[in-house]
Design a protein around this nucleic acid. Sequence first.
RNA 1: GCCCUUGUAGUUCAAUGGAUAGAACAAGUCCCUCCUAAGGAUUAGAUGUAGGUUCGAUUCCUACCAAGGGUACCA
Length: 549
Amino acid sequence: MRPRRNLRMNPRTILNDAILTAVEALDLPRKSSQLTPPKNPEFGDFASNIALVLAKDARQKPLDLARRIADILVLPEGFAQVSVTPPGFINFKLSNSYYYSVLKSILANPHEYGKSRIGIGKTANVEFVSANPTGPLTVGHGRQAILGDTVASILEWHGYEVTREYYYNDAGRQMRLLANSVEARYRELLGEPSPFPEDGYQGDYIRDIARVIRDEYGDSLEPGAAPFRKVTEKTIFDDIKSTLQDLRVVHSRFSNEQSFYDNGAIDQTLSDLRSKDLIYEADGATWLKTTALGKNQDTVLIKKTGEPTYRLPDMAYHRDKFDRGYDMIVDIFGADHIATYPDVLSVLKTLGYDTGKVRVLIHQFVTLLRGGEIVKMSTRKANYVTLRELTERLGADVVRYFFIMRGMNSHLNFDLDLAEDQSEKNPVFYLQYAHARTANILVHARAFDLEPGSDFTTQRLDRPEEINLLKELSRVPVVWESALDSLEPQIIAQNLQTVATAFHKFYTVCRVVTDDQELSLARLAIVSAVKAVLKNGLEILGLTAPDRM
RNA sequence: GCCCUUGUAGUUCAAUGGAUAGAACAAGUCCCUCCUAAGGAUUAGAUGUAGGUUCGAUUCCUACCAAGGGUACCA
């Protein structure tokens, strides 16, 4: 589901109306055009491509048409000038007074600036990580943890009430294999070696858990006794939760597969599918007619062993999420799930659910490099690098930013050797340093009895670095709302970088605390606005906003 | 084989179909008497290959090449 864009009047829509009025006066069709901030600041604040779009209809050269439109266009209030440049762009420049009003509005409500309120009164569920408790989280899980947590924060920022959810499979083959692996290590400890399960979990943590079980339950546990399973699951889950907590990722709800067996949801889903005539038996297994849903192959739902594959519980689980009534359901999966979620969605659609509420975010995998060599990750073979280890070495801010600054579609490379070296140069410090600078200026100003307030002389702010900084601040709401549309945290990270750059440039050129009290107060207003915006952005990204560095 | 992602500077990543393809790290050169130099200024350096659509293509389409993932009665 894509949230509806709010229709408040901003300079862009006002300008667009003016352009369309001019176009109609020339008897040309109201085609949609774009108003974009030009890369080159000499071209002003907005560029319209309307003449390029309409050139064919008008049978004129784009440049000539652009001039005609510009001639008859009535410049709306708040705009300072208009120009035409090849190949036919019409450029507009906002007057400084517009930026002054932006500054005032930030200071009037610092913590609200950039909030669209689109999600107010709505609920959302974000499911992420959802790793089965078979071992420690790896660096690969980290990407999903940070992505999911930040997407949730973006939704919260725009007003949604968000549930961060973790789903795990605790009823299938994997967990049985895990328990068997622990039991084998337990027997080893007792000097009664038993064969280690084929494909068993080989990590050292399995031995540690076996030791805990022996210390706690003694050496007389029956084969297949409950602790092998229960203690293992709890121990590993505790580790997963604390690893996530170290990264400031906290789920508010955990759902598990077993509960859907216990409450009959899985049987119910199966019988509902059967009544839709989507189920048949063959080769001793139970099949779902995914061919009827547009696939070129049917899918096994229940193996001939009588055990369902993960798909059936997945369907029951998603159904449960729908029944809980969320306005938006976000599923975050790794690239390995790209082929399976359409099955779940099409089944739910067949069962009458509005799958338009679902946003599926697929992220590509992290390729780990060590010494230039690719490290293949496998929990079972225990040649992973744990997320805990990484967080302990680099810190939560660096790890979070590393994952946020890349788009989820990038197949990103993570060089373990460079990670530590580069952590000191992580761009997150650039943002945090900008924030610390604002804080320090305010402290310094206080020593001179200068306090930022709402009463200042806006006209004193006329240096290019000041106007440019205000310009960046004015773009924040648009950009942060587009992050809500795309659910790409990277957009906010990038935006904060440009704000920080504009501020650093301002800082080097414009001394804030000076003998000129009027100027100082005006600049302090900018500084406190920047501080608020950076703090808001860092908060969304789950990063600290230090006052000193 | 078929399906999904992705190929951009030496490296890691950006770029709603728009103007001169941005940034960081690495390399070179400058700037602290001044609110923190974790900063600023500046030089050099890139769109896998071949076509197509378009006024305009890194972006859309086709083929090829390369990487990752899927194509399991694993999750």
